[in-house]
């Protein structure tokens, strides 16, 4: 557009139409972009639930680590009680693996190492495994992998 000519037209009809037209186009464009963004945003997700039952407390021996790789969670029972760790590596999201003989948890992708209480032993991860919510419901342990809790949270049973 020849801005000098518009400038010369001053505050007349041409200027009014120019800004009205631009405003209308801008509004339509912004509306279209917003609808587009909403379009690519899925409304219903068919994903596994983040909250699930893992079993009765008495079925886990004291001082044990039980891995459920399909649901990406470790259930740890200590002398004090239970806690659950997300098995998803805090570095870039691979599924870690508990190695009984080493008494530690390893990530196969980039070699991070974690203790069975979730604390970081070796990088490239910069923080320990997420401790996730665990509660007792109808005599069964229920884990919520989306809900992160304090690093020292333990469920006493």
């Amino acid at each position: 557009m020849d801005s000098q000519r518009i400038e010369a037209a001053g505050s007349g009809r041409r200027r009014f139409l120019w800004f009205t037209g631009l405003g209308a186009l801008g509004t339509a464009g912004a509306g279209g972009a917003a609808v587009m963004l909403d379009f690519v945003h899925p409304k219903v997700l068919f994903e596994p639930p983040s909250s699930f039952r893992v079993g009765r407390p008495e079925s886990f021996p004291v001082n044990s680590v039980t891995a459920d790789y399909a649901r990406k969670v470790y259930l740890v029972r200590t002398e004090v009680g239970f806690f659950a760790l997300s098995a998803v590596c805090t570095h870039l999201g691979c599924i870690t693996r508990h190695v009984e003989e080493e008494g530690a948890i390893f990530c196969p992708c980039h070699g991070s190492k974690f203790a069975v209480d979730g604390s970081l032993l070796m990088g490239p991860a910069t923080r320990g495994l997420r401790r996730i919510a665990i509660r007792l419901e109808d005599g069964e342990l229920v884990v919520d992998s989306e809900l992160e809790v304090e690093k020292d949270a333990v469920l006493r049973v």
């Binding site: 899925p42 994903e47 870039l92």
Partner: peptide, 25 residues
């Protein structure tokens, strides 16, 4: 998995961008 987690690390828009790219979590 690794690539989209890298994208997630982008400031502000990262998590939303990853969600839209994957069409889920």
């Amino acid at each position: 998995t690794v690539g989209t987690n890298m994208a997630e690390a982008a400031p502000l828009i990262g998590p939303k961008f990853k969600f839209l790219l994957l069409g889920g979590n």
